[in-house]
Design a protein around this nucleic acid. Structure first.
Lengths: 269, 269
DNA sequence: TAGTGGTCTAGACCACCAG
DNA sequence: TGGTGGTCTAGACCACTAG
C-alpha cells in the first residue's frame, strides 16, 4: 500500500492513486517554491520495495511475490509493479528469471563477484580472487576514516588488513575500515573471501554502489614487503568508498595493487 | 517498416507482426539446434533505429520524429517504439526531453565530455581538459595497432600524439591510432579538443563504448620529458579501445597520466 | 498443466514546453 | 493552445520453467 491511510485498492485505484500522488507531492513540495515535486507511482513502488530490501524483509537469493501479488497488495496495476521491478533489476538489486520469478540479488554467485572486483589477468585465467587476512582490530576512527565514512569524532572502526591473490598470484594489499557500530562483532568472525555477502547475510547491509579513485604510486617499504617486491615499484592505488541501499558510506577500502600481470578493467558507456 | 516485404501497417499490425517475428526467428534460428532465436519486436525497432543512427540519417543534436510518427511508419504500437527509444536512451545514443522531443545524443555538450574522460582533479576545479597536438602522421599499422583495431597486414593508420591539461595543468601524454581508411584526410584537419564529436560530424562514426585497461608504470625518459617530470615517476597508463555503433574497434589510445593532483574516477554499480 | 515473467497493444490522462 | 514525452491501466498472448 504505499501509504498508511488505506489498504489495497480494488479496481478504482486510478483516481485515488492520483490523489495519493498529489498528496505525496504536496508533502514533498511543501516549503519549496515553483517545483511541484511530482513523484510517479512506480517510483513510490520502487521506494517501498527498496525499503523492504534495506530492512532485509527478503533475504539474498530469496524469491519475491509475483508481479500480480505485489500489484494486488500495493493497489496498483501489474505494469506499474513491473516498471519498479525493472528499475530495481537495472540497479542490480534484483534478478528476474522468466518462468521462475524475481529474486533478491546475491553477491555470492560466480558472475557477480566481478561487479566490485575490476582486476583481471592480462592473459588467460579466471582471475578469481582469494584473500588472506593479516590483521583485524577495533580502534578509534582516524581523521581519514571519519571523513570517508562520515563518522562522529568519538566513533570507532574495525580495521581489516589483508592481501589478495589473483589466480594464486599475490598482487593486492589492502586495508578495510568499517564503522564498528554497524558491524558488531565482525572482528571475531572468520572472514569469507567475498566480504559483501557477509555484510548482507550477517549484518543486513547491502552494498549498492562504490566509488573508486585510482592513482599510480611508488610502493613504500611496508607495502613492498607485504607484496614481496622492491621498494619504489609502481603500483595502482585504489581508494574505494562503498555505499549501502540507504546511501550511507559503510566501508572504506584502500588497496595497493601490483599491475605487472593484471590490469584494472573499466568499461565506458 | 522492419522488413522490406511490406510498408507501414494500418491497424491490423498485430497478426502480421507475429508472422514477422516468427519469420525473423526462423531466419535467425536456421541452422541452430534447440534455440528458437526469438527476437522481440521492440528489439527489431531498436536495431532499425540504430542502423539509421549508424548511417547518420539523423545528425547529432537533431530531433527525431515523434513516437507516434515512428510508430505509424514502422507499423507498431507507440508503446513498442517507446521501449526501443528508452533502450537507445539508456545506451546514451539518444536524449529525450519531455515536452520537446527525442534528440540524437551529442558528444559536444558540457556534461557528456566526461562520459569518456574519467580524470578528475583531487580538489576543486572543473577538471575540464584541453589538448595540444605535438605530432600527427600516417604510417603502416604496427603489430599492436593491427591487433587492437582488427586490421589487415597492409593496413595504414593515422597516429596522433598530444598532451592534455586538466585545469590548465599538464598531466597526460597520449598516442591515438585510427585506421586511415575510416578517417580519410584526418591528418590535414585542425583537431578539436573533443575528438569524438569530430569523428561523428566529419566521418559519420559514433563512439558507442570504450574499454580501458589501467596499469601503474614507471615513466620512461621520453614520456618523462614530455610531462616535464623525473624519469621513473609512477604514472597511470590507460590502454583504451573505442568501439562504434557497429561494434567495430575504431580507435586505440594509449595514455600516460600523472596522478599527483588528479585521479581516475570509477563508479561501480 | 499451471504459474511466472516478457511482449504488445490501445487508450486515457498528466507534465512539460513552445509559440 | 497544440504537440511532445511520461505515466498508468487493462487485457491479450507468448516464452520459459517446473512439477
Amino acid at each position: 500500500m504505499l501509504d498508511t491511510s488505506f489498504d489495497a485498492l480494488p479496481a478504482g485505484g486510478a483516481q485515488r492513486r492520483h490523489e495519493m500522488e498529489r498528496s505525496g507531492a504536496g508533502q514533498a513540495g511543501s516549503g519549496r517554491g515553483g517545483a511541484v515535486g511530482f513523484r510517479p507511482l512506480y517510483r513510490q513502488v520502487y521506494d517501498t520495495l527498496l525499503k523492504r530490501l534495506a530492512d532485509a524483509v527478503w533475504q539474498p537469493g530469496q524469491i519475491l511475490p509475483s508481479e500480480g501479488q505485489l500489484a494486488a497488495e500495493l493497489g496498483v496495476s501489474q505494469g506499474t509493479v513491473r516498471k519498479a521491478l525493472d528499475a530495481l533489476t537495472a540497479d542490480s538489486l534484483l534478478v528476474r528469471r522468466q518462468g521462475r520469478g524475481t529474486f533478491v540479488a546475491d553477491h555470492d554467485d560466480k558472475q557477480s563477484v566481478f561487479r566490485f572486483f575490476k582486476l583481471r589477468p592480462d592473459g588467460d585465467g579466471t582471475g578469481m580472487p582469494t584473500s588472506r587476512v593479516t590483521a583485524i582490530a577495533e580502534a578509534p576512527a582516524s581523521a581519514d576514516e571519519r571523513g570517508r565514512l562520515d563518522l562522529a569524532r568519538a566513533a570507532r572502526v574495525v580495521r581489516i588488513e589483508r592481501v589478495r591473490l589473483v589466480d594464486a598470484r599475490l598482487c593486492v594489499s589492502e586495508t578495510i575500515s568499517v564503522p564498528a557500530s554497524l558491524f558488531p562483532g565482525i572482528a571475531q568472525i572468520e572472514l569469507p573471501n567475498t566480504l559483501y555477502s557477509l555484510y548482507a547475510a550477517r549484518f543486513g547491509i547491502t552494498i549498492a554502489t562504490a566509488n573508486e579513485r585510482l592513482k599510480a604510486v611508488a610502493l613504500g617499504a611496508r607495502e613492498a614487503g607485504l607484496l614481496e617486491v622492491a621498494e619504489g615499484t609502481p603500483a595502482l592505488e585504489i581508494d574505494r568508498v562503498a555505499v549501502d541501499l540507504e546511501e550511507r558510506p559503510v566501508e572504506w577500502r584502500l588497496s595497493t595493487c601490483l599491475t605487472q600481470e593484471i590490469h584494472y578493467l573499466s568499461v565506458l558507456r
